[in-house]
Each structure stands twice: as C-alpha cells, then as structure tokens.
Write a protein that binds this DNA or RNA. Structure first.
Length: 568
RNA sequence: CGGAGCGUGGCGCAGUCUGGUAGCGCACCUGGUUUGGGACCAGGGGGUCGAAGGUUCAAAUCCUUUCGCUCCGACCA
C-alpha cells in the first residue's frame, strides 16, 4: 500500500479520552475512531490487523477440524427464556423490541442459537462429535465501557461450540481447543498464560482463561514459580498454615469501640495486627442473610463464595433492611448472638484463631478474645479468602506470585447445561436418547489486537509482532526521482514475495515519515534516501530491537525476508 | 447505579469566576522558500460555544432542565 493512496490518519497528539496505551496508540496510529461510548469504527489499518488475527484463529481452528458458520446477531427472547438466561444474564444483555413489540436481543454469545440449530439437525451418535465456530460481532451492554477496544460494547469474537457424545469425548475436544489456543496466541507473538478460571454466567464445569500478561490488565493471575499451577485470582487456592503465633485463650469481653467500623480503624484503635481480627461481611441471598467470616488480613473472594452457594448473584445486604430485620449493624457485625436464620460461613483462616476480635452486633461495640467454636458456631467452613502473593502452591508448595492479565480467550466444559435446557439430544448405538455434552471456546479478536499493543510498544508507538503486523515492512522514500524509483522497485519486489508492504511516498519531510513509521510500527523499516542510494544501499531497522543495518539494494529483498523470519 | 470531572472548528486547549465583536496551537487549502527525526514565511477556509428553556439592552459566560463523554467504584469477556 502506498501511503499517498492509503487512509491512515495519524495523530500527533494523544486524544484526552484515551487512558491506556493500546487505546491511545490505536487512535494515534489511525486504526480506530470512536463513534459512541464503547463503540468503535475500524479504519483500514485496524481492520487489517483484525483480519490477520482472524486468519490465524481460522487456521488453527480448521486444523482441529472445527467448522466455520455464521450465526444471527439478532436473536429472539424465547430462546433465551428457554435457557433461563433472559433473566440470569442481567442488564448486560442488549435487549430491544421490534415493531410488533416482540422481545429480541443482540447476541453476547451464541450457545442458545447453536444448540437450537443442532437439536433439530443432529440425531445420531454417528454425526458426533461436531465442533462449530463463528467469528463475528457480539454485543454486551457494559455498565462502563472503558480502555478503548479492551472493554467495548460491540466487539469481534471467535466463539466455538462442540457437541460430544460423552464426557470423555468432550475432554478430548477441550484438550484440542486448549492446544489450538496456545498455538494461536503463540503465533500472535503474545506472552500469555493459561489459567484455571471461573465459569461465571456461561456456566459449566472446567474452564481455562488465556491471559495476556500486561500491567493494564483487569484480571489478576496467580501462578506458581515452580510448577504449572496458574489460576485466576477469583478461583485461586493456596496452602497456608493458620496456626496462630503466641495467642492465648481468654474470656470473652465486650469493649466500647466508638465509630470504629472498618478493619483498618479497628486494628488502629486496638493496636493489633489485622490478622488477629475477624472480618464479618453480610450478604443477602435468595434464602436469607448470610454472614461471611475471613481473617482480618484477608480479602473475601466473592466468586468463591458464590460458587460454594451455587448462585450467580450475590448482593451485599442493604444496610437499613439489615438493621430492622436482623439487628445486625454494618461495621459492627459479628457471628456472636445473631439470629439463628442467618447462615454463617467461615474461611479456615478464622477457625484456628484462639483470641480474635469481632463486632458485637451493637453500635460502637466489639468483642475481644473471641474463639470460634466456643463463642459462636459456624454452619460451614469453606475457603472463601483471596490468595495473597507469597503463599504456598497447592500442588508443589513453592511460592505463589500475582500478576495482571488481559483475558483474551476462555474455554469451558459446559456439560449438559444448554443441551438439557434446549433439548439437544441424540440416539446412541442402542437407539437410546442421550443428552449431548457441550463445550464452548471463545477468543476476543479485537481484544487480542489491543492486548498485543499493551505488550509491544515504546514511547514512539507500536512494535507489532510480525504475524499480526498490518504491514511487515514500511519503506520510507526520502525524496522523489531516483530515490522514489528505487523505493518503488523494492516495494514491488517485496510485494511479489508475498509481503504486506507500506510505501511512504508522500510529499512529507523525513521527520514526519520516521515518526509515522515508528507509530504504525511495522517490524522492519526500510529507508531509502539520496545518501544511501548513492552507495547503492537501503537502510534497514528492526522496530522491536532497534537493530540497524545497511543492505545493497539488489540484496535488500532477501535481507528483509530473512530479518522477518528471524523475528518470528 | 453511587462519586468526580468535562462538552468552545477535525484534534489539543484558553476564554466562563467578574455577561459586552469567539481566540490559540496542531491539522487543512493556496503560493513561495525548505527537505535524513513531526520546517519556515505570507495568505486563506472552517465554530448552532452539546441541546432546550429562562434572566438581561446584551449570554460561551448567570439560572433551570436535558443529552453526551471520561475517570473512580460496584459489575464483567
């Protein structure tokens, strides 16, 4: 592509609205423009990168025998009511009505549609397993779109769905997809980790997320320094010795603690470390109130609690209702002498305490010397705390670390959740009707593009990994006449060799061209000016490493091809 | 939804407190000089000041309502 003919509107200044690097650079490099909150237009350069990522995904999916389909984005409410997600999915689901006032939604994911298709078409075990995928725009009415394309309301996603005869077959497909995902993200040049993940609103049993490691990530990944254990913080477990150091049992004692309604204030007020306090949090569930206890120095992990309770929604109790209905006062809540109907769930970290501190369920009072079992009973002891860095790995006892990640893909074993609800069954060898086992496999295409930038940039712009660079080579013609002729000659040679090449043939000063080239971030930059031309040479520079070298014009093509090959 | 902030030419902003001819930088167009890391000179085009209503002789500026956008939080791929 010649720059003089291209539409790549680069920006010198960073738009004020862009907070994260990928958002800033995608705007500046002329890849995207915002239409509305969380809704973006992809300009030619952005579209080209998307197509590169899609091509890699297609290849790897096809290699595993998955088949591409195109599914409706607009879907009838009935389908979602059948799977009960019309209610469960919540306000995130983009809903609308047609002129007949029929309820519809814009698909955030396609389990319902695909299962509906399959249940009518597939009847025999002989036709299974089947693995279908789609790459298309999906919609989520995000509460707060942010970070540009990383969390938008409209985004491109690859979603795959497998239908298997049994668990064993599903396991096999799942493994294949896991392998395909590793291949996809490796080929995209990303530094990533596959981690054990929560299944959330999609549901199912096993799940892994593929996380691109970047500081701007919204997820926290827990991983072992020694073995292969890696999990999303939402699910991560650790080994911890909760034996209290020098603590003695003593008689329960109520003390006045005016205005001390947080763990921090309490630790300050009593001059005790948080680990000697018990944090009590009150939630509202379908079956009433629930008191969750963790040691003061831990954070409650709501996902763990939700999963234990088997609920999708979990709300902190409304203060006023809580006080009138149970007498529990937020800030001074505790497990001692609370109404029997309030369920008490404690983290193991609490149970070993000999002399803790809890709220007294009375404004401005706490209990000292609290001992679980003696002073209060708990209904369940469950791991509901958030893992902290430095704790022991549950697999090998080595130290755990935490890092930030951007989720670019997730795979699930759905089991029979949707096939059951929507009636996707088949006849087995014995002519008996069986429910299909399903799996689903997603990759955020547009998010992957942004994640790649989050991992590959410097002060001057993007440093594209070769495989997904919109153009592998940028040629800067610093002049016209012979210089331009030589540049076009090399441009033609490289294109003939199958490369995507961007030729800067604009009537611009050198500085402008250099800066745009750095911003757009082609892996290899070639400069041809009167100086180098006089010597019969072109100057090559590798964007990622800064490596510079000169090549004779007649050998430049081969040098460039070799450079690119080495970069992979 | 709670908290904070912002809407002035394509982009970045000043002007708003204290009402009085709508400005600056970048970008864009024309001509000239320049030409290896975002040139210079001269000339030029482009703005319902987010929208509606009100106060006033007079509103970007004051008042009311409303819409949009961004950030923090809850939530989530």
């Amino acid at each position: 592509m010649k720059m003089s003919k291209a539409y790549i509107p680069t920006l010198k200044e960073t738009p004020a609205e862009a907070e994260v690097v990928s958002h800033q650079l995608m705007l500046r490099a002329g890849m995207i423009r915002k239409l509305s909150s969380g809704i973006y237009t992809y300009l030619p350069l952005g579209q080209k990168v998307i197509q590169k990522v899609e091509a890699i995904v297609r290849e790897e999916m096809n290699k595993k025998g998955a088949l591409e389909v195109l599914l409706p984005a607009l879907q009838p409410a009935e389908l979602w009511q059948e799977s009960e997600r019309w209610d469960y999915y919540g306000p995130e689901l983009m809903r609308l009505q047609d002129r007949h006032e029929r309820d519809l939604c814009l698909g955030p994911t396609h389990e319902e549609v695909i299962t509906d298709l399959i249940k009518d078409e597939l009847r025999s075990y002989k036709e299974l397993p089947l693995n279908l995928y789609q790459i298309q725009t999906k919609f989520r009415d995000e509460i707060r779109p942010r970070f540009g394309v990383l969390r938008s309301r409209e985004f491109i996603m690859k979603d795959g769905y497998s239908f298997n005869v049994n668990q064993e077959s599903l396991d096999k497909t799942y493994q294949q997809m896991y392998a395909a995902y590793e291949e996809v993200f490796t080929r995209c040049g990303l530094d990533f980790k596959a981690v054990v993940a929560d299944t959330g609103a999609i549901g199912g049993t096993d799940s892994h997320e593929f996380m691109v490691l970047a500081d701007s990530g919204e997820d926290t990944v827990v991983f072992c320094e020694e073995c292969d254990y890696a999990a999303n913080l939402e699910l991560a477990k650790s080994e911890v010795d909760f034996q209290p150091e020098v603590q003695k049992e003593a008689e329960l004692k109520k003390v006045e603690t005016p205005g001390v309604d947080t763990i921090e204030k309490l630790a300050d007020f009593l001059d005790r470390p948080a680990k000697q306090l018990i944090k009590s949090l009150v939630f509202e569930t379908d079956s009433g109130y629930l008191l969750a206890l963790v040691r003061g120095d831990y954070q409650l992990n709501e996902v763990k609690l939700k999963n234990f309770l088997g609920v999708v929604q979990l709300e902190m109790a409304d203060e006023e209702e809580l006080i009138t209905e149970t007498g529990i006062i937020p800030g001074f809540a505790g497990p001692i002498d609370i109404p029997a109907e309030v369920q008490v769930i404690a983290d193991p970290s609490v149970m070993e305490m000999l002399s803790g501190v809890t709220g007294a369920n009375e404004a401005d009072y706490h209990y000292l010397n609290v001992k679980p079992g003696r002073d209060f009973e708990v209904d369940q002891v469950v791991d509901i705390r958030e893992v902290k860095a430095g704790e022991e790995c549950i697999q090998c006892s080595a130290e755990l670390s935490l890092t930030k990640g951007i989720e670019v893909g997730q795979i699930f074993k759905l089991g029979t959740k949707y096939s059951q609800a929507l009636g996707a069954t088949y006849l087995d060898e014995n002519g008996k009707e069986q429910v299909m086992e399903m799996g689903c496999y997603g990759i955020g295409i547009t998010r992957t593009v942004a994640a790649a930038i989050e991992q590959n940039y410097d002060d001057y712009g993007i440093k594209w990994p070769v495989a997904i660079a919109p153009y592998q080579v940028s040629i800067l013609a610093l002049g016209d006449g012979e210089v331009l002729t030589a540049a076009i000659e090399l441009y033609n040679q490289l294109q003939a060799a199958g490369l995507d090449v961007l030729l800067d043939d604009r009537q611009e000063r050198a500085g402008v061209k250099f800066n745009d080239a750095d911003l757009i971030g082609s892996p290899v930059r070639v400069t041809i000016g009167s100086r180098s031309l006089a010597a019969g040479q072109a100057e090559l520079k590798v964007r990622s490493t800064g490596q510079e070298l000169e090549a004779d014009l007649d050998k430049a093509k081969d040098r460039i091809i070799k450079l690119l090959a080495d970069l992979k």
